[in-house]
Amino acid sequence: MVQAWYMDKSTANPRMPHRAHPNRPVGLEQLRTLGVLYWKLDADKHENDPELEKIRKERSYSWMDIITICKDTLPNYEEKIKMFFEEHLRLNEEIRYILEGSGYFDVRDKEDKWIRISMEKGDMITLPAGIYHRFTLDEKNYMKAM
């Protein structure tokens, strides 16, 4: 099951967990109030997963791509990692499904406080249009996502 928490205010290495002290966990219901939705799927069968197909059909997802984020495969790796971690918003919903590896998606709550969502293999989230967010790998420095 996905874990989420309020972040500390440290600007040190973004790939660290950055849990607030004391820890302030965030549950799925609180994420839902922000418009962030979550599913746990079987990433090993992503190419022929009826559950994924059901979600895609219900939510009218017609396009997908796969990105592998690691030093060996992503051109301009360090530059891209910095770009992904810059706070931004999109005009459309953003969908991320983790096929391998792990990382963090950070979203702002309604009071502009950062919530960190730890994602690993099989986790899928949607971020609503208009929510400020950013992404970084964790210390493992590898993720393959759809």
Rank of each mutant, 00 (worst) to 15 (best):
Q3R: 12
P25Q: 06
H46R: 10
G35Q: 14
G27E: 07
S62M: 10
L28C: 05
H18K: 04
G35M: 15
N48F: 13
P14K: 04
I69Y: 01
D8A: 15
L74Y: 08
R59K: 14
Y61P: 00
H46C: 05
K54W: 13
H46T: 06
E47R: 15
R32N: 15
L31N: 01
K54D: 15
R32W: 05
W63I: 13
Y61V: 10
M64G: 01
A43N: 05
A20T: 02
Q3F: 07
W5R: 09
H21F: 07
L52E: 06
I69S: 03
P50T: 14
T68H: 02
R24G: 04
Y61M: 11
T68A: 06
T33M: 13
E29L: 10
L31H: 01
A12I: 04
G27A: 11
S60E: 14
S60Y: 08
D65K: 03
E58Y: 02
K9D: 15
P14V: 05
A12C: 04
Y38S: 12
R56I: 01
Y6N: 12
K40F: 08
I67L: 12
D8C: 15
P14I: 02
P14W: 05
H18Q: 05
L41D: 06
P25N: 03
G35S: 14
I55R: 12
L41E: 05
K45Y: 10
T11W: 02
R24E: 13
P22W: 08
I69N: 03
L52R: 08
T33E: 13
E47P: 10
G27Q: 07
I66Q: 05
T73W: 03
T68P: 08
S60Q: 12
A4T: 06
Y61W: 09
N13L: 03
D65E: 05
I69V: 08
A12Y: 02
M7H: 04
V26Y: 12
Q30A: 13
W39C: 09
M64W: 03
V26Q: 09
G27V: 06
T11K: 03
Q30K: 04
A12E: 06
L37V: 07
K54V: 00
E53V: 09
R15V: 00
D44A: 14
I66R: 01
L41Q: 02
W5T: 14
G35N: 12
P14H: 01
T11S: 00
L28K: 05
T73H: 12
